[in-house]
Design a protein around this nucleic acid. Sequence first.
DNA 1: ATCAGAATTGACCGTTCGGTCAACTTCACT
DNA 2: AGTGAAGTTGACCGAACGGTCAATTCTGAT
Lengths: 197, 197
Amino acid sequence: MGAETRGRLVATAGDLMQASSFAQVGVGDVCRAAGVNKGSLYHFFDSKEDLAAAVLDAHWARMTGLMEVTVGGEGEPLDRIDAFVAAFIDTLDQRRRELGTTPGCPIGSFAAEFAGSHPSLGPRTTHMLGQWVTVFERALDEARALGHVDADLDPAVAARSLVGYVQGMALMAQAMDDPGVARSMAVGVRPLLQATT
Amino acid sequence: MGAETRGRLVATAGDLMQASSFAQVGVGDVCRAAGVNKGSLYHFFDSKEDLAAAVLDAHWARMTGLMEVTVGGEGEPLDRIDAFVAAFIDTLDQRRRELGTTPGCPIGSFAAEFAGSHPSLGPRTTHMLGQWVTVFERALDEARALGHVDADLDPAVAARSLVGYVQGMALMAQAMDDPGVARSMAVGVRPLLQATT
DNA sequence: ATCAGAATTGACCGTTCGGTCAACTTCACT
DNA sequence: AGTGAAGTTGACCGAACGGTCAATTCTGAT
């Protein structure tokens, strides 16, 4: 079945691109690493850009899955946000073991590479970050109704700040090649949200 | 004098690379935009990597300059940190006007692109981020001595969190192509530092 | 005025890139 | 068993890449 080949291509390309970047990884590299010929790759994908879009979607699917079981789970909203951050850092750890180097946030890295320069991939990442903000925003609405955060807090702004902070955590961990850096930064989440409990 | 040509090459390469990325910008692009022949570029720089190192140093020089007049200035330490953040966002605004698109943090963007994949540029960016953290850390030491932040606060961790947060601010602003996003996130700086005043 | 070295030119090189293609094999379905 | 689509192969293409180089011009010190 070709679906398996396609999946292997997406997974391999995702690994390579997360370990370095979209531009640094050639389609030849992906094919070699995946054990697939170039013609096959272009049977499944129209272009390198199309492959990158599939990679991005795969990353985003994993991210939304992570959000569902944490932010969308049970318990108090701020605890659920904490749970997401912890789980996110765990994936950093896991990916570091798989890739041999600490990656950044797959969404954020693509966003930084494509923003303002790539006409289709850039907006796609921007939209994902926007959805991400919305998920946090809903949890913060809930927390505000419960009085768990300061009443003056603007959930929309705070949610955006939180996504940004997570991006910064990932970037610092990537630069230092140590997920522990992100873990130490996690204590800043609650203060950032002006939690009152 | 050749120094001017060299400077124009660094400035042009800096603009192009900040608007997209190192890998996306070819030396031919840089030469064309700078009005310089390729041979001249290789008279001043050993390689594209060498050029990128010069670009990075130029960015870092501007950043340290910004830090000196803000964090290293007069007044209370937390106010000086606020001043830096405000000035940093101003440069985002200014660069957006110059480049036509909102850039990320020049240091952070390079760090994300090179970390773990480029043997000389990666560590260089990491070192810069480390120095950046140290500057904040000293200001936070001062703030702690003055009782302006919670006594339990670990200045080293908080300083790293702050640099990360600034990176996240820049990334979000870049993705949304709106420095206003970063400006709205600035209100999170004080809470992040657990300021008590 | 001279001359050495810096700066500049633009053609050129080998490689790698993203992408194409016609031919071949495998698979699902009747 | 037969058939058409899906999947696979590997050679191939033009363009763009980073980088080189011999030749030429500019420049500042003597």
